[in-house]
Nucleic acid binder design. Structure first.
Length: 474
RNA sequence: CGGGAAGUAGCACAACUUGGCAGUGCGCGUGGUUUGGGACCAUGAGGUUGCAGGUUCAAAUCCUGUCUUCCCGACCA
């Protein structure tokens, strides 16, 4: 059994999560309070996420920029809702330890203000629009309780900030980017997310509305995975970002922002991994195939190298573990690191004319002929694993999806097993707050166009306006 | 920010109650034998016991303060 003992997922989910992060060397705690070191294995996942998303963003016309790390207080204060929303988490800079500047500087918790400040001098006509900018960067929010990837004070993300000449165009952008995230979760992370709109209470400070992708973790706790905001002209008014429209009138721009963070790595872990360590969907795995040669005969070496070359040629990321560890150690290590496919090549099998292929997700071992067309076999297996992982995640989510018609229903569900709870809502904030008293259960999102499961509010019994998914969140 | 727990070698821990040479296992270096689910023998290196102060002839051990981490709540991506 494992040397690096991982706490069982069903015994203590929180401990299991941090055990997996440590065992797979994704991240470690640093001496800087609330900040983590993202280690090579973890950063490689982030790089893969970046490269996939960046390509998608660029396909849709977005370009990357880099804004300053610091925001002057005078600039930040222009948009009141944003300031109020972030005030407790903003970190301020002092010089030489003690001295405060006349116009204090904070470290960006998000960069709406910086983009607006830039845009106001770079837009004058409708011909300058839209501006479709994105930045990959770090931000800082002074969180009280931190957990690797899920919540740290400094974290990496991507923030898109676009401005448009019409409301419709900006709203389409907001919707389009939520779809980009949805597809990314579905196609690459093998996570079945649910799309919807945040309630007034849960939306981003300063936004007119927020669209969200909500994912459900293995333990039934929800994770807000990526959001897309429509700002209307709110920020444009606060920061005076105007343009001359086709009718030769001055008008404020229509704005959006959208982002996703390294938290997605935490989501990947909590949806797919097991008691043996990390399990990664092949399409996001930085290493897809490991070849473990057993013994050091010429035939073993030759076949290992040949397989590696063939697979690499087809862009299947493959490496040979030729360290002097024992085979058992290599198997266990590949498993804890979540390498989707392992090929074991040893003399015992070769004598029978076979090799062994193991898949990480099911831990199943398959004996195949050594003359197999390895590229076809492995690429099909990777596709199967990707598909099966999605289906398992979807099945788990459906098992943990419930319906509630009364507050009592909700209580009963949450007391036994948290999950996504479908329930109708009248739209009153008081009801939302009352529901929150049940184990901190919050609205995850409003399902648009979903069919009604009831005609009255789960809380007050008055006429229901929205079909909402509720849940306990990270 | 409240409630709980813990900080001793890279990691997991022992020694603390009753003050007296800082230890064990894993990992790491070297040499060798091995190789189908976390190999074995030999040998070696590795420490300001989180930090600061106090008590004492003497502190990992007792006292005070402080910092950090983890878990559970409240707040948030």
């Amino acid at each position: 059994m494992a040397n690096n003992k991982i706490t069982s997922r069903d015994v203590d989910f929180a401990k299991w999560y941090t055990d997996v992060v440590r065992a797979a060397s994704l991240a470690d705690y640093s001496s800087v309070k609330g900040c983590i070191v993202i280690e090579p294995n973890g950063y490689a996942i982030w790089e893969k996420m970046q490269s996939i998303l960046d390509k998608e963003f660029k396909k849709l016309g977005h370009v990357n920029v880099q804004m300053p790390l610091l925001i002057p207080e005078s600039m930040l204060n222009k948009e009141k809702e944003l300031v109020n929303g972030f005030a407790p988490e903003v970190a301020w800079v002092t010089i030489g330890g003690q001295k405060e500047l006349d116009d204090k500087l904070c470290i960006r918790p998000t960069s709406e203000t910086l983009f607006c400040d830039y845009y106001k001098d770079h837009v004058s006509s409708y011909k300058d629009l839209p501006k479709l900018y994105n930045q990959w960067c770090n931000v800082l929010r002074w969180e009280k309780e931190t957990r690797p990837f899920l919540r740290s004070r400094e974290f990496l993300w991507q923030e898109g900030h676009t401005i448009h000449s019409s409301k419709e165009e900006a709203m389409n952008e907001t919707n389009q980017m939520m779809e980009v995230y949805y597809k990314f979760f579905h196609d690459y992370l093998a996570i079945p997310s649910i799309k919807g709109k945040k309630t007034e209470k849960e939306k981003f400070s300063g936004a007119e509305y927020t669209l969200t992708n909500e994912a459900l973790m293995y333990n039934g706790v929800a994770l807000q995975a990526a959001t897309s905001h429509y700002f209307g002209q709110k920020f444009a008014e606060a920061y005076d970002v105007k343009f001359t429209n086709k009718n030769n009138e001055l008008e404020y721009v229509y704005q959006t922002s959208w982002g996703c963070t390294t938290r997605m790595i935490g989501g990947l872990i909590m949806v797919h991994s097991d008691d043996y360590g990390l399990v990664l969907p092949p399409k996001i795995a930085p290493k897809q195939v490991v070849i473990v040669p057993i013994g050091d005969s010429e035939e073993v070496k030759t076949l290992s190298n040949s397989f590696k070359e063939q697979l690499l040629e087809k862009d299947i990321i493959t490496y040979i573990d030729d360290s002097d560890k024992s085979p058992g150690f290599k198997f266990a290590e590949a498993e804890v690191n979540g390498i989707p496919v392992r090929i074991e090549i040893g003399e015992r099998d070769l004598a029978k004319g076979t090799i062994t292929i193991a898949r990480r997700d099911t831990r199943e071992k398959i004996e195949v002929s050594k003359d197999v067309d390895i590229v076809t076999y492995v690429s099909e297996l990777l596709d199967t694993i990707q598909k099966d992982m999605y289906e398992r995640a979807e099945k788990r989510r459906d098992e943990l999806t419930f319906e509630a018609h009364t507050l009592d229903d909700m209580k009963k569900i949450l007391e036994t097993q948290p999950g996504f709870i479908h329930a109708m809502w009248c739209g009153d904030k008081e009801c939302e707050e009352k529901i929150k008293e049940i184990k901190g259960c919050k609205s995850r999102c409003i399902l648009e166009g979903a069919k009604s499961i009831d005609d009255k509010c789960v809380c007050c019994g008055k006429e229901a306006k929205y079909h909402v998914i509720w849940g306990i969140q990270y």
